[in-house]
Design a protein around this nucleic acid. Structure first.
Lengths: 139, 139
DNA sequence: CTTACTGCAAAGGATTTGCAGACTA
DNA sequence: TAGTCTGCAAATCCTTTGCAGTAAG
């Protein structure tokens, strides 16, 4: 198992489910997507979506995941924080999220914003059209 | 007046109000903030928040404004699209939004993301602490 | 005039919360 | 066993929508 249970957080079956889904996810997921993955795996009908939200809140308070709302979407997406953080190129047509091979912000050396502002993090998303959708549009 | 009424959009008093507030705004605003600015200016009590949303929708459909949800906030913010688009450094303490002097993405020449992906736009936000909040934390 | 826009109020939908029972340590 | 967590259902809150009256061109 690549990811270990974070210390300082009480371990419950439901939180483990959310943890497993998030750490195994390919990209950011909505609460509903996480919920569906969980019940699909546990085959447990008595599972509350509110528990998902509460688990996510606990992880977020402990700075273990990132909550975002992507352009053109209404629901928040959640992603587990990894050593090497990720950015995505999001296709405006099919909404697919393609991970960038590396973080452009680290590639360049811009760690300075406005004067006297200490940067602790950043959020970057690229928008455009993936190969398949470009082909479809031309065709 | 710097900004001219966009052609192709029916001109009404209410839309003009939203247009004026947005084009004069210093940064992104929530629908509620726009609403309050509008009624403060017009002193009109019979003004519906739904009209604000509908005006925003029309402008957005015409690609005249950008709707975003900032990290750690629940409400969407709206910003008029300008020739020179803006990015912000957002203080995690006081939530102030400080505009960056220039777009870091243009500064570097990264216009390539994943293979065969055509980039049409991007979203970038820096997070951290502004001068005042740093001082407060140290003191 | 004709059609689109607005105010009002009510509906939607994601997320949060109160409470009593269930479970972890 | 003590205290937290969960399921359930109801409440919130931002945002959207239906409808009848109003305004723009």
């Amino acid at each position: 198992m690549e990811y270990q249970w974070p210390s300082g957080i009480k371990r419950t079956r439901q939180r483990e489910d959310v943890f497993r889904v998030l750490t195994q996810a390919e990209g950011p997921m909505t609460a509903m997507e996480i919920y569906q993955k969980v019940i699909e795996h546990t085959k447990n009908s008595g599972y509350a979506i509110s528990t998902i939200y509460r688990s996510l809140a606990v992880f977020e308070e402990n700075d273990l995941l990132e909550k975002t709302t992507l352009m053109g979407e209404d629901m928040a997406v959640y992603e587990w924080k990894r050593e090497q953080h990720k950015h995505y190129a999001i296709c405006l047509s099919c909404r697919r999220k393609l991970p960038l091979p590396e973080c452009p912000m680290e590639q360049m050396h811009i760690h300075s914003g406005p004067e006297d502002f200490t940067i602790t993090g950043h959020k970057l998303e690229l928008y455009g059209y993936c190969k398949e959708c470009q082909t479809l549009m031309k065709g």
